[in-house]
Design a protein around this nucleic acid. Structure first.
Length: 570
RNA sequence: UGCCCGAUGGUGUAACUGGCAACACGUCUGACUCUGGAUCAGAAGAGUCCAGGUUCGAGUCCUGGUCGGGCAGCCA
């Protein structure tokens, strides 16, 4: 049972590791690995795996976690991706130490092992083409047929395989296959391809090879070479485990244990590498680090912290059942972390001009504001106040509903850290009638936000002094998809139909307090009452650009929604 | 019409070798508050996919179903 406030109990993977430690199965060693293919950017689903693998290594004395690039398919893999992956893993707070590996480092050994299997009569060179191999494989319900090349003499396969390596044959003309069982109910056993000819330069080995091992023939052996104890992967490899085991047994080499867990699914989010590539290449987003992307780079740019992502990964647990995790849980952890560490600041996203008619024209005074109520050590700062201010447009309503306790004609509110003001006059554009500003009076007795007469003011709103405010662009983000499960598509539709047209809203003319002028890209702030924001690298001097990381919890929005919902249902 | 895996409040995850289901998110109340934030206090919400069986006792074990997911790349 869980105790109140405690972390979830150990998941089934950790339970296996603990049991193995108890029985001494691996002599007390714990070696895991995170094995990305460098063909795309890491996303939150990978973060789950990273936290699991590196986490288990950290939790066990002497445990280590390797970072190994599974680079067996040169057609899709690039250095750009390996660099981004390394950076992302580091940013998440994990360290592989000296244990950085590449499957491509093992190509020669893998080749030798392939030769060994041929010699044992457990592999053969097959001259069938791709279509024929598919045909011969059979179907889910029918057994396959044996390749006519299956019983070719060992010497002949050996010679052919050597010549495949030497580049004597065309791409696709031959493959090396394991010789297992064409009638196996597990399709992975129907003489799986071990090597294919690919006359493509590899990002690390260049043109040294023109044959490349398949995942199944590389992964287990790589684990074996590295003396991995627990090879943790996702559920879709469950059917591959018998083959993983088969190769290691046939080769008679060190044999790690493969354990599979369910991959992460997040509501309103897509986590298929393929589809993420489509989003980038189709220009649906600005790039891999678009703040709406579920990539580590995107979340980082958005303002998420590694601590928040790790806390999220710990909270969701690890199991074998398919699930769809509510993105609200991720956002909860982001808020929880940011609340403690973000300096508070005032920024007006949709400015409405306010003139304090009884405040002197040329005076500017400095008012003291608390930087972070959650952290007294963060200290205070001064913010300028003067006759002309901006407040948030929706902090004023001409005809407010019940429960609205901000500014309205004749009503008094508190300007945070400043004075009480009362709305005296509404100014409109003569042509359009649009609201262009307010005239208010202030009560000089309320400097700093308190009143000597103890009069209660329910509403407190944020503001900036017009003359000193800094102009900024603010980018508001919403879920990239408007459907909880973006993979659910109407008949004849496409998953991109589920893209949320309002996932990005750019506000070009926001005003923020002057203390923000010197902020550095990546710096995070709470704009009081609005949310958490992070300075985007697109900022230039004199042109600040902020990304909204996540809103604050908004009770008022909830009340509004309820009221509207109530009206609709009537 | 094959093989593998899974099924616990709205969501996710727990419940040591069987002892009348817990934690977190979300939801709802209330308190407090110079952020309708944070914090604090409290509430509702599942009888564990179904049917049998074993047992004094089953979410945990057995049998048979149902539903969901994965697998027919020279991708990983």
């Amino acid at each position: 049972m869980n105790k109140p406030g405690s972390a979830p109990g150990p998941d089934f993977v950790r339970a296996i590791v603990a049991e193995d430690n108890r029985t001494g199965k691996w002599g007390g060693r714990v070696v895991t690995r995170f094995p990305p293919e460098p063909n795309g950017y890491l996303h939150i689903g990978h973060a789950k795996s990273i936290c699991l693998n590196f986490g288990i290594a950290q939790e066990n004395p002497g445990g280590v976690c390797h970072l190994r690039f599974d680079d067996t398919n040169p057609c899709k893999e690039e250095d750009e991706y390996v660099e981004s992956i390394k950076e992302n893993v580091r940013w998440l707070g994990f360290d592989w130490g000296k244990h950085l590996y590449y499957a491509s480092d093992y190509f020669e050994q893998l080749y030798q092992w392939a030769v060994k299997l041929i010699e044992k009569g457990r592999a053969y060179v097959c001259d069938l083409n791709a279509d024929q191999i598919r045909e011969y494989r059979g179907t889910l319900t029918e057994p396959g047929r044996e390749s006519p090349y299956r019983n070719r003499p060992v010497e002949e396969s050996l010679d052919l395989f050597r010549r495949m390596r030497a580049g004597e044959f065309e791409e696709g003309s031959r493959v090396l296959r394991a010789r297992i069982d064409m009638a196996s109910p597990n399709l992975n056993f129907r003489d799986p391809v071990m090597y294919r000819i690919l006359k493509v330069a590899h990002h690390r080995t260049g043109n040294q090879w023109c044959i490349y091992p398949m995942y199944d023939f590389a992964h287990g052996q790589s684990d074996s070479i590295e003396k991995v104890t627990h090879s943790i992967c996702t559920l879709e490899f469950e059917d591959h485990r018998p083959l993983y085991d088969w190769y290691l047994e046939q080769l008679e080499i060190y044999h790690p244990q493969q354990i599979e867990f369910a991959r992460l699914n997040l509501s309103y989010t897509i986590l298929s590498k393929r589809k993420l590539i489509d989003l980038v290449e189709g220009n649906y987003v600005s790039g891999w680090d678009d703040p709406r992307m579920p990539t580590i780079s995107g979340m980082r740019r958005r303002g998420y912290t590694p601590e928040a992502i790790r806390a999220f990964c710990n909270r969701i647990g690890v199991s074998k059942s398919d699930s769809l995790i509510d993105i609200a849980l991720l956002e909860h952890h982001v808020r929880e972390d940011l609340n403690l560490r973000s300096p508070r600041v005032m920024g007006v996203l949709d400015p409405l001009r306010v003139e304090i008619i009884n405040y002197p024209e040329d005076t500017v005074e400095e008012l003291e504001a608390v930087n972070n109520p959650e952290d007294p050590a963060a200290g205070t700062r001064n913010i300028p106040f003067s006759r002309v201010l901006y407040i948030e447009r929706d902090d004023f309503m001409e005809d407010p509903p019940k429960n609205y306790y901000r500014l309205a004609p004749g009503r008094e509110v508190r300007l945070r850290y400043a004075y009480y003001i009362t709305c005296r006059e509404v100014i409109r554009d003569e042509q359009s009638g649009a609201l262009t500003g307010l005239r208010c009076t202030y009560d000089p007795q309320t400097r700093g936000g308190g009143s000597p007469d103890g009069r209660k003011v329910k509403g407190t709103i944020h503001w900036v002094s017009a003359a000193q405010a800094v102009e900024a662009e603010v980018r508001l983000y919403d879920h990239l998809f408007s459907r909880e499960n973006p993979n659910e598509v109407e008949e004849g539709g496409n998953w991109t139909d589920n893209l949320n047209p309002d996932s990005l809203k750019v506000l070009p003319a926001c005003r923020v307090e002057p203390s923000l002028a010197g902020a550095a890209p990546g710096e995070r702030f709470q704009f009081e009452r609005k949310g958490y924001f992070c300075l985007d690298p697109d900022s230039r001097s004199g042109r600040l650009v902020f990304n909204r990381t996540v809103t604050l919890r908004d009770t008022w929005a909830k009340i509004l929604k309820q009221q509207q919902g109530g009206e609709e249902s009537k």
